[in-house]
Design a protein around this nucleic acid. Structure first.
Length: 463
RNA sequence: UCCAGCGUAGCUCAGUCGGUAGAGCAGGCGGCUGUUAACCGCCGGGUCCUUGGUUCGAGUCCAAGCGCUGGAGCCA
């Protein structure tokens, strides 16, 4: 395996004279009379290592299989490059092809592939410039997320993937079962007999780790989850996946103001981390994908987020002097066109909207004293819309029970959740951030399927 | 799920008024004293998404289906 000092990234930083063995995949090869040029990449950085092999140094047979896509190992010496484009290059003296790739059938060419085509070869697309950069940034952002919370004393908790609570809108959950679907056991009255299923009752893939996260927050004060989340909604958009990764911090002794404060601090931290540690990749995105990403990110890091209450947002939209496809009035949810107007036209940077009408938000959000709004907050970002959704949680037992009833939910199935209010309850708050949404924002990529390694969307679960 | 668009070579696309198919790139071969999406020459390469219909004749017109993309809804 490659060790620190042996990655292409390290070889490119080496001084001339160092004898090395480089390993990687051939991105492209050019031949000139007397010289062969091989671009080698091992995924460690955006740039390729240029390998130069003089004619006659290496047997023709060894060179023949050095084609685009092949995996090779090259012995040689790092030398100063006499040509523009790279500081150093590798003068190759021996080449071993570890895994050949037939150039006639290898699907990645040296130029111009559409993202649609690359999605069909998701097992190979990570070797391309764009996807190499996307997934390095994804890794860096994931690390930054952990670092942000760990530095602040948050405990990382693994909430369950399989859940029995069918709370938030039953139609959107994936069922989990070991029952034989071609011969489902029935009860006397004809319903599915889940008592014979693996868990003895209906179970689903989680849509959120929040409720379990609250249990841990009321033991460890500050916690976060970071894991996969599943939605069975038939959403066919560039912003939705059936399987995606979500970060959900939950803080005890915390109100909505603190919640907003840490959400803003968090976004600025992880974006700042990417600006500092993913410079080459971001410059590529800035040049080829979205020419404003770097300036946008720098702007986000350096300026305070705008704050609006829902009521103020509605007033701004009403006064916008335009006709909305979806009418604006108190009690209406903010639609894409409204979010876009607020973030892109009116304000031009992330906006935190708070205090939504209780009817359009979840049962667990804390009631405000006005009786009609709840302590919810959404962070809206230009270009991608909602990037964070959070709230202060209802910590009062009697009020929460009433809200469960008002939302038409079954109190019995929330008994453990209510216990948290029964024993040592405290004001607490949290939020959820979609990793892929963040990644779209940071890279400028336009389709969420292009920021996750192997996308799961309605009708598609390849690889 | 709704609305719109698209489906032609490995990839990106062109294809006029309905008359049996083209380019660039990629690939192969050859050339070129340092290339950078190298360059120059030659060569091979087609289930025109599927099914049905109209027509003497369909890549082209019509219908249905499938797939993909974009917009909307749901949301992170």
């Amino acid at each position: 395996m490659l060790k620190p000092g042996e990655y292409v990234r390290d070889l490119l930083e080496s001084e001339p004279g160092r004898r090395v063995t480089a390993r990687g995949w051939v991105k492209t090869r050019r031949d000139s009379k007397g010289l062969h040029f091989v671009q080698l990449n091992d995924g460690s950085c955006f740039r390729d290592l240029q390998v130069v092999i003089e004619a006659g140094v290496v047997p023709e047979a060894d060179l023949a299989a050095v084609t685009t896509g092949a995996c090779v190992e090259v012995d040689g010496e790092i030398v100063a490059s006499p040509a523009a484009g790279q500081r150093v290059e590798l003068r190759g003296t021996a080449v071993r092809v570890l895994g050949p790739a037939d150039p006639a059938t290898y699907p990645l060419q040296k130029k111009g592939h559409s993202f649609e085509f690359l999605r069909e070869i998701a097992h190979l697309r990570s070797r391309s410039n764009t996807f190499g950069a996307v997934f390095r940034v994804r890794s860096a952002l994931s690390f930054a997320i952990h670092r942000f919370f760990q530095e602040r004393g948050f405990v990382y908790v693994h909430t369950p993937i399989i859940t029995a609570s069918d709370c938030e809108g039953a139609g959107s959950l994936f069922g989990v079962t070991t029952l034989d679907l071609s011969n489902v056991p029935r009860t006397k009255d004809g319903k599915v007999d889940y008592s014979q299923d693996f868990f003895g009752k209906p179970t689903y893939l989680t849509v959120s780790g929040q409720l379990e996260g609250e249990a841990f927050a009321l033991a460890f004060s500050n916690i976060y989850t970071f894991g996969p989340t599943f939605r069975a909604e038939n959403s066919n958009t560039p912003r939705h996946l059936a399987e995606f990764w979500m970060v959900e911090p939950e803080m005890a002794f915390c109100d909505l103001a603190d919640d907003m404060k840490i959400a803003e601090e968090f976004l600025k931290y992880v974006i700042g981390y990417a600006l500092e540690h993913c410079r080459e990749d971001l410059e590529f995105f800035n040049q080829r994908i979205e020419k404003t990403v770097i300036s946008t990110l720098e702007h986000v890091v350096n300026s305070p987020f705008e704050h609006l209450t829902y009521t103020e947002a509605i007033r701004l939209l009403e006064n916008a002097n335009r006709t909305w496809e979806f009418p604006v009035h108190f009690g209406a949810d903010l639609q894409s066109e409204h979010e876009r107007y607020l973030t892109e036209e009116k304000i031009g940077r992330p906006v935190i909207v708070t205090d939504y009408p209780k009817e359009i938000k979840a049962f667990y959000m804390r009631d405000n004293d006005d009786g009609r709004t709840v302590r919810a907050m959404d962070v809206l970002a230009p270009r991608i819309g909602e990037i964070i959704g959070g709230s202060q949680r209802e910590e009062r037992l009697d009020v929460l029970r009433e809200k469960i009833r008002a939302h038409g939910l079954n109190e019995a199935s929330y008994s453990w959740y209510l216990d948290l209010r029964r024993f040592g309850s405290v004001p607490h708050a949290g939020f959820g951030l979609g990793l892929e949404r963040l990644l779209m924002y940071v890279t400028g990529m336009k389709n969420i399927r292009d920021v996750i390694p192997f996308a799961r969307t309605p009708g598609s679960a390849e690889f």
